[in-house]
Amino acid sequence: MRAKILIRLKKQILEPQGKNIEESLNNLGFDKCSNIRQGKLIELDLPENLEDRDSYIKDICNKLLVNSIIEEYEVL
């Protein structure tokens, strides 16, 4: 089964890439876009019959995929 994990910088942390994307979109005339934040999506395969899927994903996020000082994640 495919797992999708969305990782983003916490709200209180400035995300300069999003700010620049917003500026470029505004320059293109898309002036209704605001508060853009860029994150990252990680996809991985897990066995269908994995019993503790949630805690397994939590573990890999805590141990490597996510730096909890600056990032938060959700499983899509």
């Binding site: 400035l14 300069p16 890439q17 620049n20 000082i69 600056i70």
Partner: peptide, 17 residues
């Protein structure tokens, strides 16, 4: 060192990119 946890905090993208 911050990723190991020997030092506290994190280093983010430079503000001006």
């Amino acid at each position: 060192l911050t990723e190991i946890g020997l030092l506290d905090g994190a280093l983010n993208r430079n503000v001006k990119l």
